[in-house]
């Protein structure tokens, strides 16, 4: 196990370095003088900043050699100093801290909905394989997976406003300050993101259940006269959930990205809308920080899911999973 963890960490290190390089390069590979482009813009539509060219170059450290820039930037990031927003001059770290809870809440709500609905649906369609319920459930899942999330959001807004006189609250409401506004704001985006997760999880649960239900120990359990319910829940489900749990874990990353789109549609002031607005207004220090943090988070989630996988299923041969000789 220790050896396995060490190997996984070794694989994660180059990925982490690659991610920091990618984030670092966002500011540096843009052709021409970045400072000039930030101030003037490609077609003269640049962000009107309280900086002069020289000041901005100084601020971004652009007048030093690349290697020096990279290492000092990395050192700053490691200490949590992510610089100042080019647009507002405020600390990037503080802004992110302010935005993070709402995005995390949205992703968490969606994950809970996805697991809570997806697993039962997967069990149902597997146990009743080839019944009408199975077909309807599977078709529904395919349908949900093909629906663009942002379009579903637009339709919810369209129908909500038109027929129910409902407008999602705009602004920021902490769950503990104003639970009603907070939930009203987040429930539909969470449902949309969650329905997508549900479809993925239901499909995975179904195929995994079907596989397990064919195993010998299931036949044994039935032969010894165990109630079908117990066979399904205690014997089949416990084994079937192993691959599902990795999917759920890995999807946390995808969920966070999904919130980008939902925050845009429902004007939720989270990290996603911050990223988009920063991209649009050339707030490169902000973009850089968000991409850097997201990349770190994904790599760590990947690592954690690999470790959790090994922990829930001790049969897994670590060497085999790495796919190397």
């Amino acid at each position: 196990m220790a050896q396995y963890v060490a190997r996984r960490l070794l694989v994660a290190v180059p990925a982490l370095l690659g991610a920091t390089l990618l984030a670092f390069l966002i500011l540096r590979v843009i052709p021409g003088d970045v400072a000039e482009m930030i101030l003037r813009g490609e077609q003269g539509e640049g962000a009107a900043l309280p900086y002069s060219l020289e000041q901005l170059r100084e601020e971004l450290g652009l007048n030093r050699p690349l290697v020096v820039q990279y290492t000092s930037w990395l050192w700053d990031m490691a200490r949590g100093d992510m610089g100042k927003s080019l647009l507002t001059g405020r600390s990037v770290g503080a802004e992110l801290l302010h935005r993070f809870p709402i995005t995390a809440q949205l992703a968490l709500m969606a994950a809970i909905l996805g697991v809570g609905l997806g697993v039962p649906l997967g069990i149902f369609t597997a146990v009743r394989q080839d019944s009408w319920g199975d077909y309807v459930g599977r078709l529904g899942a395919i349908f949900l997976l093909g629906l663009p999330g942002f379009w579903l959001g637009l339709l919810v807004l369209l129908v909500g406003v038109r027929y129910f006189d409902w407008i999602p609250p705009v602004g920021y409401y902490a769950l503990w300050d104003d639970p009603k506004s907070n939930l009203l704001q987040l429930i539909f985006p969470a449902l949309i993101l969650g329905s997508h997760q549900m479809a993925l999880i239901a499909r995975m649960t179904r195929s995994s259940m079907l596989e397990v239900l064919r195993e010998d120990f299931i036949r044994t359990a039935r032969a010894k006269g165990l109630r079908e319910q117990l066979v399904v829940v205690r014997h089949a489900l416990r084994n079937a959930l192993i691959p599902v749990s990795t999917l759920v874990f890995l999807n946390l990353g995808a969920l966070f990205v999904g919130t980008v789109v939902m925050e845009e549609v429902f004007t939720i002031p989270g990290m996603g809308s911050l990223l988009l607005n920063s991209l649009r207004s050339r707030d490169y220090t902000m973009v850089q920080a968000i991409i850097f943090l997201a990349a770190m988070a994904f790599i760590l989630i990947n690592l954690a899911s690999d470790l959790v996988y090994g922990w829930i299923d001790p049969r897994i041969s670590y060497r085999e999973r790495l796919g190397s000789p």
Binding site: A15, G18, A19, L22, A23, L25, I26, V29, I30, G253, A254, F256, V257, V260, V261, L275, L279, Y284, V287, I291, A294, A295, F298, I299, N302
Partner: peptide
């Protein structure tokens, strides 16, 4: 290591 959309956003940022 990155979800597709994030990679795309990062590349388009560049």
């Amino acid at each position: 290591a990155f979800p597709g959309l994030l990679l795309a956003l990062a590349l388009i940022a560049v």
